[in-house]
Design a binder for these strands. Structure first.
Lengths: 211, 211, 211, 211
DNA sequence: AATGAATGAGCGTTCATTCAT
DNA sequence: GATGAATGAACGCTCATTCAT
């Protein structure tokens, strides 16, 4: 991954000029998740991904601009789903506390049911500072904003302490979720283990934030 | 980085048979921190590190087995310092709450005063799952153990809630610190910003954990 | 050439997993013969071979495991031809003396018509004792066995002296052929010079061995 | 070994400007023989030779111009001894046949009592055609001349067949000796095995050459 | 003279990407 | 669209050689 490559790669909205029809794109993404999770972004060869996806090496370049673009697209698409799920579901909940509860549960639940993806997001995404800064950070910021506004709402409601910066709290919450996910993904994960951790985490956070 | 290389590389305590005298080793480590922080582990060329350290390319191999070994040594040595600082200072403190406070402050303080190192540890270290699993995890575990035993002590003392798993709490706390560090290192960090965040974080955690 | 590499490199029958179709492999072998003959195995760069073969550097690695494997394959394939030629043709001849005559003539003839190959076999193959011992020796032994059994047959027939060890004689004959080839390949070889030498050599040997 | 390096390296009669006193030079040569025999010229590192000789790496360059020069000097000095021994002893013998006998016995005897040197001469010397052509060939020619003149003398005496080219015979004899030495050096050499082979070889050659 | 830490040119090999089929 | 053989730039590492001590 050329450091410089991040700067320009997303200049075209869609990396693929005319995305050909079919499930191949999705198969490649799945193959990439699997391969990145197993070997890491840099150690994974494009041909490994092709093999995992059951396509020829060259086919990948019909759907993605280059290797970086696979990771970027992966992150973009999966993360977008998470954000829109949250945007759709959170408003339906009555108060800040239940929203925080839901938010943590959604994120940890998503990770628990897609372990490979969890590894890719918690581990592989952090390939380089520049990648994070130039590509991931903005989208990540968006996610943190969702969190922060839940906190801010709660402060306005009066249910949460008002002496805290919503953004700092959001970062800390995100970090704690990420930390749990990471250690879970790395360890010999028992099923449901992550969900159980979620309950305790939520509990601590909610109590720590309550007015 | 060969995935397999982690398995054996640290078999000898010291990668360099007879580390020649001098400050060169330290200069190389510093050059590596700087270079990894700027470009990421994989994108950093060994010759970049050499240039940053002001030595010839070949000199690096007098002090380190290979490129991997630089990262590993980096992590090992800097992390060891953190752990031993904690092991030395924590017992002097009177109760669990002040120990948690100190622990968070030490870790965030260390990061704030060594921003490049912070980047390397929060970002570059996560190069591959296998790296984490095979090399970093054990040492990381050691660190979490220190945290967990502070929590467990507090539970025995009666100052902390007893319905929480110390290990889960430790992971979450570590994650939240790591998350703050990451966003700080990536952002345009104002001086003291991290320290300020630390206060709020500590406050939430302590309140969340209190009996 | 790692000394150790000979031990395992031939573990798979065919170094190339799925040798792609085409004449490229043969072109590379020819380029290698030319290059090794001109510069010697160690001094020849892989890129020299590629250039001589008219392929890209990387292409070589589609057909050969590594540089060593080129030399090994070269030797293996060309030597095998010689051995099977002998195995096919010798039995047709009526007596030991004519077989010896033919054998010498075949070997020297093969060398005379492939001067570069002659150089590679007489000179470059002797890169290291370990190479000879671990790889070349067995195949070489096979060749000597063919020779030795011709001698032994002659002794049984009664046409050759019986007070000599067939294997020692085979080694000496091989050496004398090799010596002539070497000096011929190194010198300013007149055409037919080697063939003329062959006649004299044969004559001496046959007379020296006759009962 | 740069191919080009042979051309110029011997331009100064003595590679070492002022050969410093002492046994170091000899120790280095012995270390080199041992190391070359074990690992081959190219695979042997200069530091290996230094270790075998019990001197520092840099010391080698006080006695030899470079790595090539070690091999060249080795060959030169040891071969010179052989040639002068022959030049001294052969004239004392009464006839061509006993001279041939002695010559073979001297050469094989020298090899048998210095196995490492035998390996170096039969194997390592053949590093590259250019080395042989530019450096070894002349001295080698000198040796062959000694042999050839013994043959020519015998032909003039009438004891040897006159229909053979003395030079071709010399090459073949040298080759046969070399072949025996090589297989002996590579194999699990029993003591005296080479001497025994010598008797048979001599016998065949003498009979083959007799008028 | 002797040392051995330091140097840096040089090369084998990998692998993302291309393109003829 | 799909393929996969071919490409060649790029880089980690080695090791002969130098030179300050």
């Amino acid at each position: 991954m050329t450091e410089a490559s991040f700067r320009t790669q997303r200049s075209k909205k869609n990396a693929t000029a005319v995305p050909p029809r079919g499930d191949k794109r999705e198969r490649i993404l799945r193959g990439a998740i699997q391969t990145f999770a197993r070997k890491g972004f840099y150690t994974a060869r494009v041909s490994d991904i092709a093999k995992a996806a059951g396509v020829a090496d060259g086919t990948i370049y019909l759907y993605f601009k280059n290797k970086d673009d696979i990771l970027v697209s992966l992150f973009e698409e999966r993360f977008d789903r998470l954000i829109s799920t949250l945007r759709r579901e959170l408003p339906a909940l009555p108060d800040a506390v239940s929203r925080i509860r839901h938010l943590i549960s959604i994120q940890l639940g998503a990770m628990e049911s897609h372990r490979d993806l969890a590894e890719v997001i918690t581990v592989n995404l952090r390939q380089s500072t520049r990648f994070l800064r130039q590509y991931a950070a903005p989208r990540f910021e968006e996610y943190l904003d969702v969190m922060a506004s839940v906190i801010a709402d709660g402060q306005r409601e009066g249910s949460l302490r008002q002496d805290l910066s919503p953004m700092i709290v959001a970062r800390a919450i995100f970090g704690s979720i990420d930390g749990l996910t990471l250690t879970w993904a790395l360890g010999s994960a028992g099923p449901g283990e992550l969900t159980r951790a979620a309950v305790q985490l939520t509990d601590v956070i909610v109590r720590g934030l309550s007015a």
